[in-house]
């Protein structure tokens, strides 16, 4: 199956053609945010204050990269476990985020919110961090530099590989994949 190509800003049309199990290649701009950055963004939303980045149509990658060695734009940069961002994700989606990338399963609330706001959850291969770093052409910190690896980075990527886990139609690759390969326990 051929990979679908995506570049932000992402439209509803882009989202609705994606199905759980599809492989995608992302090029262009993605933003990083993990636990601490999510907490700060959602605090700002609740206070009604302006966010350091505009989320409309954007892609958020859950990652805390390793430090960039000399001459490289970024250190190893694989996805972190997404479940820790579940509490914040519906609010991020309400503010216009269209794609989030991480690894591991999401809550029912997040899956529902993905359908409601026409958005998708992708997984990148956890631990393929050196491979994923090679797709990053440029990286700069755009907010919260004091958070170090947890700062918000703006990354310019070329052919960043990911897989659709939860699409906007309610499908879940983690459930479908396991069903297809599960064997009854040998008694």
């Amino acid at each position: 199956m051929e990979a679908k190509r995506l570049t932000a800003p992402i439209s509803d049309e882009d989202i609705l053609q994606l199905k759980a199990g599809d492989t995608v290649l992302i090029s262009g701009i993605i933003y990083t945010a993990r636990d601490a950055a999510h907490q700060r963004l959602v605090e700002l939303m609740e206070k009604g204050e302006e966010l350091p980045i505009d989320l409309v149509g954007q892609i958020i990658y859950y990652v805390g990269p390793a430090p960039a060695p000399p001459g490289k734009p970024i250190g190893s940069a694989g996805p972190t476990t997404s479940g820790r961002m579940d509490a914040y994700t519906p609010q991020m989606l309400a503010r216009g985020m269209k794609i989030c990338i991480g690894k591991g399963s999401r809550s029912e609330e997040v899956k529902k919110a993905l359908q409601e706001y026409k958005a998708v959850y992708l997984a990148a291969v956890g631990g393929a961090a050196a491979l994923l770093a090679k797709t990053v052409a440029k990286s700069e910190v755009v907010a919260y530099p004091e958070l170090g690896a947890e700062a918000i980075y703006r990354l310019e990527v070329v052919d960043f590989p990911a897989t659709v886990i939860n699409d906007a139609h309610g499908n879940d690759l983690y459930e479908e994949g396991v069903k297809a390969y599960r064997r009854e326990p040998a008694c």
Binding site: K72, G75, V125, A130
Partner: peptide, 22 residues
């Protein structure tokens, strides 16, 4: 996934980067 993981190990070795950011 396994192909990417094996390729990742090779890249990490070649570029002297950690296998995983964690």
């Amino acid at each position: 996934v396994l192909r990417q993981l094996i390729e990742n190990v090779r890249i990490a070795r070649e570029e002297k980067m950690p296998i995983c950011q964690d």
